[in-house]
Amino acid sequence: MDILNNWKEIIGYIGTVLIAASLMMNSIGKLRKVNLAGASTFAFYGLLVSAYPVFVLNSFISAVDIFYLIRMKMEKDFFELFRIYRSNNPFLVRFVEFYRDDIVRFFPQFRLEPHKEDYIIIFILRNMMPVGLFIARPIEDNNLQICLDYVIPRYRDLKSAHYFYRRSHNIFDELNCQYFYVYSEVKKHITYLKKVGFTPAEEKGSGWYRRKVHYE
């Protein structure tokens, strides 16, 4: 009986940890998913120990999470790319300054050079909000080296990335680009790169990744 009770407590603690962890998520989608897992686990715990108010409350929270996850899945977002031609553009400079601490978590070496003329600078707009920033520079053989590929924390659900990388865009058609190249040693960034279709670029050495500009 003691072992059974201990298992019940463990289930309760798991639910508690998941709910607490969900509150620290930046992404609304991740928050809902983890909160759903935690609330469902805690509802099950409430049922096991006959704590019916706990069961009812967390069942309700689970239902709310499911409702919003379905709604988020069904929502249609409008995406657009907006190119900037000057690296000293005031909004660009302010955007980079505002998110600098978060940017360096994924691109530790990134520094915006205000008078760099060969930058290709593109804001990713989501429902007319600038949620992402892509900066690259031309390299040999009609390729682009990515200097920055950043999305603000609230919108890291990969929708912006899929729009950017999995569609043909006139900007890159005009540049006649073949491959994107990027260097990274940041584990979270490498995980992201693999999710959007990058593979190791063995010809450039360790830490380099590439993918075709046009999605196939």
Rank of each mutant, 00 (worst) to 15 (best):
residue 4 L to F: 15
residue 5 N to V: 13
residue 10 I to C: 10
residue 11 I to G: 07
residue 12 G to N: 11
residue 13 Y to S: 12
residue 15 G to M: 13
residue 16 T to Q: 12
residue 16 T to I: 13
residue 22 S to M: 07
residue 26 N to F: 12
residue 32 R to Y: 01
residue 38 G to I: 03
residue 40 S to W: 01
residue 41 T to H: 02
residue 41 T to R: 02
residue 41 T to L: 08
residue 44 F to H: 03
residue 46 G to T: 04
residue 46 G to L: 03
residue 46 G to V: 05
residue 47 L to N: 03
residue 47 L to W: 10
residue 53 P to E: 14
residue 56 V to Y: 12
residue 59 S to R: 01
residue 63 A to V: 12
residue 68 Y to S: 03
residue 69 L to C: 02
residue 71 R to H: 13
residue 73 K to I: 05
residue 76 K to S: 14
residue 76 K to R: 15
residue 76 K to P: 06
residue 77 D to G: 14
residue 80 E to N: 12
residue 85 Y to C: 05
residue 85 Y to L: 09
residue 91 F to R: 05
residue 95 F to P: 01
residue 95 F to A: 05
residue 96 V to W: 04
residue 98 F to Y: 15
residue 101 D to W: 09
residue 102 D to C: 06
residue 104 V to Y: 07
residue 107 F to T: 02
residue 108 P to I: 06
residue 109 Q to T: 09
residue 109 Q to W: 05
residue 110 F to H: 04
residue 115 H to K: 05
residue 115 H to S: 03
residue 115 H to F: 12
residue 116 K to C: 01
residue 119 Y to Q: 00
residue 121 I to S: 00
residue 121 I to C: 00
residue 122 I to E: 00
residue 123 F to Y: 12
residue 124 I to V: 15
residue 124 I to W: 03
residue 125 L to T: 06
residue 128 M to H: 13
residue 129 M to E: 15
residue 131 V to T: 15
residue 132 G to Q: 12
residue 134 F to Q: 04
residue 134 F to P: 02
residue 134 F to G: 03
residue 135 I to V: 11
residue 137 R to G: 02
residue 138 P to G: 11
residue 138 P to E: 13
residue 139 I to E: 07
residue 140 E to V: 13
residue 141 D to N: 15
residue 141 D to F: 13
residue 142 N to T: 08
residue 143 N to M: 06
residue 145 Q to Y: 06
residue 147 C to W: 00
residue 149 D to N: 14
residue 152 I to D: 03
residue 153 P to C: 09
residue 154 R to G: 08
residue 156 R to F: 09
residue 157 D to H: 10
residue 158 L to C: 11
residue 160 S to G: 13
residue 161 A to P: 03
residue 162 H to L: 10
residue 172 F to Q: 07
residue 172 F to H: 05
residue 173 D to R: 15
residue 175 L to S: 04
residue 181 Y to E: 03
residue 183 Y to R: 09
residue 185 E to H: 11
residue 188 K to W: 12
residue 189 H to Y: 14
residue 194 K to W: 07
residue 197 G to A: 13
residue 199 T to K: 10
residue 201 A to G: 02
residue 201 A to P: 01
residue 202 E to R: 13
residue 203 E to F: 10
residue 203 E to V: 05
residue 206 S to N: 10
residue 207 G to L: 05
residue 209 Y to S: 04
residue 210 R to N: 08
residue 211 R to F: 10
residue 212 K to H: 15
residue 212 K to V: 08
residue 214 H to A: 11
residue 216 E to K: 13
